[in-house]
């Protein structure tokens, strides 16, 4: 009996991981097409955060695209709002918005602004764009959940360069103080920011030590491994602190010529580059 149930759990997990991988492939392709058609966007960050988003939406979050404002839902805030191409693609794959809407990305009067607006796009929790806003908002939601004894969880994704914004550390301090065990921060640790390496600009290391000093639990994971991400995001009843998941990622992941290249923070592929990317991604 026990063996069987373990086997079926493993089978479920394998199915979930396959679903995450296939969704991630679709999300990357959508996002690149969107950037190509809009002639602007942030493809490098879209690619680095995709596996995190796919793991959350297809393996972790308790959300319902038919009831996106249901009060007991889990929340995900993409604080690095410039990776909107990946977020919108994920929301479309998850059924929150129509797939066809993606082709309107950043076109006049589109609901899909360059940065997300929760009043226009179902599933968006916060109007991010200026960096350092997502974590404070997530702290507020986590506090509301704590006041209500609700069992929803709050997830927030920041960039690593984004952690140079001081507001994050105000919020990190408050999270530790309030022991927000219902809060998970995921740092998309791709080591690049807009203009250069994070380490060359204003180094955030030692990152894990910083969060531990702010009274968080910290885990390091491969941010492109759905299984490792699922393990890191697994709920834990005995958690007493907020959790920081440092997800080690590659900016531009999945597109050979974009990977770890600072120039693809914002950059628009040519037709030939797009074709090459699609070829690589479809085989992934």
């Amino acid at each position: 009996m026990e063996l069987q149930s373990l086997e079926s759990r493993d089978a479920n997990r394998e199915a979930t991981i396959r679903r995450i991988r296939s969704s991630a492939r679709a999300i990357r392709m959508h996002a690149l097409n969107m950037v190509f058609e809009a002639r602007q966007g942030h493809p490098g960050g879209d690619m680095s955060v995709t596996d995190i988003l796919a793991t959350l939406y297809f393996g972790v979050l308790r959300v319902d695209p038919k009831a996106p404002h249901e009060s007991g839902r889990d929340r995900l805030i993409l604080s690095k709002g410039h990776a909107s191409g990946a977020l919108y693609s994920t929301l479309a794959e998850a059924g929150f918005i129509p797939i066809e809407a993606l082709s309107t990305y950043m076109k006049p009067l589109s609901m899909l602004n360059g940065h997300p607006n929760r009043n226009n796009v179902a599933g968006v929790e916060a109007n991010t764009g200026p960096l350092g806003h997502g974590l404070p908002i997530a702290v507020g939601i986590a506090l509301a959940g704590k006041i209500d004894n609700a069992d929803y969880r709050v997830f927030v994704i920041t960039g690593d360069g984004e952690l140079q914004e001081g507001s994050n550390w105000e919020a990190a301090m408050a999270s530790g103080h309030h022991k927000l065990a219902n809060l998970t921060l995921i740092v998309d640790r791709n080591t690049l920011q807009q203009g250069a390496r994070v380490s060359e600009t204003n180094d955030v290391e030692p990152l894990a030590d910083k969060f531990r000093a702010f009274r968080w639990d910290v885990v390091d994971v491969d941010g492109h491994d759905p299984g490792a991400l699922l393990d890191a995001f697994a709920p834990s009843a005995d958690r007493t602190k907020p959790l920081c998941v440092i997800a080690h990622t590659i900016k531009g992941k999945g597109v050979s010529y974009m990977e770890d290249q600072v120039g693809w923070h914002h950059g628009v592929p040519t037709q030939a580059q797009l074709d090459k990317a699609m070829g690589e991604l479809s085989g992934s």
Binding site: G140, L143, A150, A174
Partner: peptide, 18 residues
């Protein structure tokens, strides 16, 4: 505490939480 940016963001999050 003395952290106004977080204070307003927390306010927005509390509103999100009802």
């Amino acid at each position: 505490g003395i952290a106004e940016q977080n204070m307003v963001g927390v306010g927005s999050g509390l509103a999100n939480g009802g």
